[in-house]
Amino acid sequence: MDRPVAPGHFSGPLNRHGDGAFTVSVGGIAVQFSGLSEALLPAAQERYSPFLSDEPPLHTVVLYDGPEHYLDMAEDGFMRVEERDFPEGRIMVSHDFAAFWPAGASAGTLRVSVAFPLSKVLSAMENYLRWCVADLAIERGGFVLHSAGLVLEGKAYVFFGHSGAGKSTATTLSLEGRGALALSDDLVLLLREGDRFLAAATPFQGSMAQRVKEKGLCPLAGLFHLRQSAEVGTLPLARAAAVGMLLSCCPFVADPGRRSEYLLPIVEDLCRAVPVRELLFRKDPSFWDVVLKREDQP
């Protein structure tokens, strides 16, 4: 049976996991985790090592002990992560953790059992980081996109699509066949800077090792919706279709809180600022020829 969780669950006497703290920066969005136990701190720092930062945090989350059960498993076996709005703020809850982000605050609370193995606590922290970065990115005119981000000659090219579209394949082919640098093969942060957009690596766990990811912000040269095909080429996309395809590849688009109302104009602006095309893609690095050729055209 699901445990009911309301803002009161995060107040009163709570026990911190410990006194450890560290900060992760995702494209300049710095989030500090504090209240870590002696055992958890080095494990978390190792996990996020290329993204550790001394920047002043935009957001801080404190880890407190919590019950071992919140939500029951879904019948379909998929992980349940639910977000609920309250006048006092927003709650994210899953099977074994719950988090609270008070309205207008730059600090949140994550409750996860101290009895859990470190891997489970790290997983809860990762979910919090995704939640937090997704929202802070929107506040800065950006968003996180399910995509592969690749950097060639200092410019970022982002290949997006649903699971199985070829993001990891495009990444592997580009690293091996083109000497490209990779931001991520799963989630890329896109941020507005003036009238242009930048792409950044994210520390979220995918199939790529953290150390392989290229850090820093790169100017975004193009976005390509992956479509597997025997032929290689690009096709134009009507702007509304491009916006729809991008939105469908944004994590957390299903959340309440009208997040999508903020996201829609940002994605539309992106589609005005950066070329978005359909990429007919087969499993060899030749797709780069058409990607770079498009960029040469006026």
Binding site: A238, R239, A240, A241, V243, G244, M245, L247, S248, V253, A254, D255, P256, R258, R259, S260, E261, L263, L264, P265, E268, C271
Partner: peptide, 22 residues
């Protein structure tokens, strides 16, 4: 459902379902 018309085509976001219609 959040929506916006872009170049004459409406883009609909079904917030709870996370689905998009153009």
């Amino acid at each position: 459902v959040s929506w916006r018309t872009i170049e004459g085509q409406a883009v609909l976001i079904h917030n709870r379902l996370g689905e998009i219609q153009v």
